[in-house]
Amino acid sequence: MDREELVSIITEQVISQLQQMAKVAPADHRNKKIPLGISNRHVHISAEDLATLFGKGAQLTKLRDLSQPGQFVSEQMVTLVGPKGVIEKVRVLGPVRKKTQVEISISDCFKLGVKAPIRDSGDLEGSAPITVVGPVGSVTLPEGCIIAARHIHLHPADAEIFGLKDGDRVNVKCSGPRGIIFTEVLARVNENYRLEMHLDVDEANAASLRNGDLLEIV
């Protein structure tokens, strides 16, 4: 065996070892930990409302990608108007959805004078009314404003690791000087999801959490 063949064999062995390490690294790295994503107020918008707010033929312009595959922050911003106040420069997230959904925090509710219920995303029936104002027009939603319930996005491979299925509810612990256990956290499993727990700004601030902090199911 010449030197070139020996180098080739060793290289193949190293590559094989690295590939095997890569396969097990995610579970080992996570060690049953879930990274946190903190959600600020935002709007998911329908195609019809997009046209009303930004003009006929308007399309969302990507500013940057979000952690969940296919989801992004757009350059478009709107103003939220409630009975007691307004909140300006609220980001619209893409892609467009079938129905417009406004997600705010409890603190935002006080400022706007809106009684938004805590709901899972997409559960809009009977939720709070709100007016959304864009540069071209405005839309008054009879329902559609919610406080997003805490939840975890999981790919099916992650769900298998954690022993969860779509729709399960779990308790999640964060450590530190303001450690807390978040109860009734919804597990959402989908091929298009990436492992991440979502809290709104109020909840994250209450526990002194930051984006990327690791949480644990208990």
Rank of each mutant, 00 (worst) to 15 (best):
E4T: 10
E4A: 11
I9A: 14
T11Y: 05
T11L: 09
V14N: 06
V14A: 12
V14W: 03
I15E: 06
S16F: 08
L18F: 13
L18H: 09
L18T: 06
L18R: 14
Q19G: 12
Q20K: 15
A22D: 09
K23A: 08
V24S: 13
D28L: 15
H29Q: 12
H29W: 02
R30K: 08
N31W: 02
K32A: 11
P35S: 12
P35G: 11
I38M: 04
I38F: 01
R41M: 00
H44S: 04
I45H: 14
S46T: 09
S46Y: 04
A47W: 00
L50N: 03
A51V: 03
F54H: 10
K56N: 13
K56C: 00
G57I: 08
G57M: 05
G57T: 09
T61G: 02
L66M: 13
S67M: 04
P69Q: 10
Q71C: 00
F72K: 04
V73N: 10
V73F: 09
V73R: 01
V73Q: 11
V73C: 07
Q76A: 03
Q76C: 01
V78C: 01
V78I: 14
T79A: 03
G85T: 08
V86F: 05
I87K: 13
K89C: 02
R91A: 14
V92L: 11
V92D: 11
V92R: 04
G94E: 05
G94F: 07
V96I: 15
R97A: 03
K99V: 01
T100C: 09
I104Y: 08
I106H: 08
I106Q: 09
I106W: 01
D108G: 10
D108C: 11
K111E: 10
L112F: 00
V114P: 00
K115T: 01
A116H: 08
R119A: 06
S121L: 06
G122F: 00
L124P: 07
L124W: 09
E125R: 15
S127A: 03
V133M: 13
V133S: 12
G134Y: 13
V136I: 15
S138Y: 09
V139W: 07
L141I: 04
L141A: 11
P142S: 14
G144F: 10
R150S: 04
I152S: 04
I152W: 02
I152F: 02
H153P: 01
A157G: 08
A157P: 00
E160F: 07
I161M: 05
G163P: 08
D166W: 06
D166M: 07
G167Q: 09
D168N: 15
R169D: 00
V172M: 14
K173C: 11
C174K: 13
G179N: 06
G179D: 06
I180K: 15
I180M: 10
I181T: 15
I181K: 12
I181W: 05
T183N: 14
E184D: 15
V185G: 03
L186Q: 12
L186D: 04
A187P: 03
V189H: 04
N190L: 06
Y193E: 02
Y193P: 00
R194Y: 03
R194C: 10
E196A: 15
E196K: 14
H198I: 11
L199C: 04
L199T: 03
D200P: 06
V201A: 12
D202L: 08
E203N: 06
E203C: 07
A204E: 08
N205P: 00
A206H: 01
A207E: 10
S208V: 05
L209Q: 06
N211V: 02
D213T: 01
D213L: 05
L215K: 11
L215C: 02
V218S: 14
